[in-house]
Computed example of a mutant assay.
Amino acid sequence: MKKLIIFGAGDLARLVSFYIEELNETKIIAYSVDDKYYTSETYLGKPLIPYSRIKRYAGTLNTPPLLVTIGYADMKARETIFKRIKNDGFTTTNFIGSKLAKTCKLGTNNIILPNVQIEPFTEIGDNNIFWNGSHVCHDASINSHNFFAANSLIGGNVIIKNGCFIAFNSTVIQNVTVEDDTLLGAGAVLTESNKKNRKYLGCPAKEVGKNTRGIKL
C-alpha cells in the first residue's frame, strides 16, 4: 500500500482523508502544518508534525510524497505553499477520486473528488481542486492553482489559465480563454474570453470589478 503525508489540518484535509481511507489504496502516515499552526501532536488520530521537522527529509530515500490540502479560501496561499514544498525537494502526488480518461494528461497535487467528469483529451496542470459534480469537457486545457466548485461546467476546447475560481453552477462555454486570476461567480455563464484579475457575475457574465488574489474569498 502506498504511503502519504498530508500537508494541512483543516476542512479540506479532513474531507480528502475521508475519501482516501474509503478507497483504501493509500495509507496516510502523518499530517504536517507550518510551525505557527502547530497546536497539537495529533490530527485525525495520526501524528501531526511541524513542517520544519519533516523538511530535513525532503528528497531522501523512502520519504512518502506530500499532498497539499490547503483549501480555496486563500487561493494565493495554496499556490505559495505548493511551490515552497516543491522547491524544498518534496515529491507531491494527486488524489483522484473519479475515473479519468486514459488520454487525460495530469500534473501533480491535483485533488479530484468523486463524481467529477473529465472528458478525453484534456490537459491539467498542477495544484487544482475539482469539487464533486464539476465537469470538464473534451480538449480543455487547465493550467495550475485553480478551483472548480460543485456543478461547474467547462466547455470543450476551453483554456483556463492560472489561479481562477469557478464558483457553484457556473459555466464557461466552448472555445473561450479564461485569463489568470478570474473569479466567475455562482451561476454565471462566461460566453467570451475575458481580462485577467477580474470578477464576473450574471448570465451572460459581466465584469463587476477586480479580483485580488491573496485575500480570502
Rank of each mutant, 00 (worst) to 15 (best):
M1W: 00
I6T: 05
L15G: 01
F18P: 00
I20E: 06
A30V: 02
Y38S: 13
T39W: 10
T39P: 05
S40G: 09
T42F: 04
L44N: 11
I49P: 03
S52F: 12
R56L: 12
Y57K: 09
A58Y: 01
T60V: 02
L66F: 12
L67F: 11
G71Y: 02
A73S: 13
A77L: 14
A77P: 01
E79I: 12
E79M: 15
F90I: 13
T92W: 08
G97E: 07
K99C: 02
C104T: 15
G107A: 06
G107L: 04
T108V: 09
I112H: 08
P114M: 13
Q117R: 08
P120D: 14
F121I: 01
T122Q: 05
E123S: 14
I124M: 10
N127K: 08
N128P: 08
N132T: 14
H135F: 14
S141M: 10
S141W: 10
N143P: 01
H145Y: 15
A150M: 06
N151A: 09
I154F: 03
I154E: 02
G155Q: 00
V158M: 08
I160A: 07
I160D: 01
G163E: 13
A167I: 02
F168W: 10
F168P: 03
T171L: 07
V178L: 05
E179Q: 09
D181K: 04
L183R: 08
V189A: 04
N194I: 02
Y200N: 04
L201K: 01
C203D: 01
I215P: 03
I215G: 06
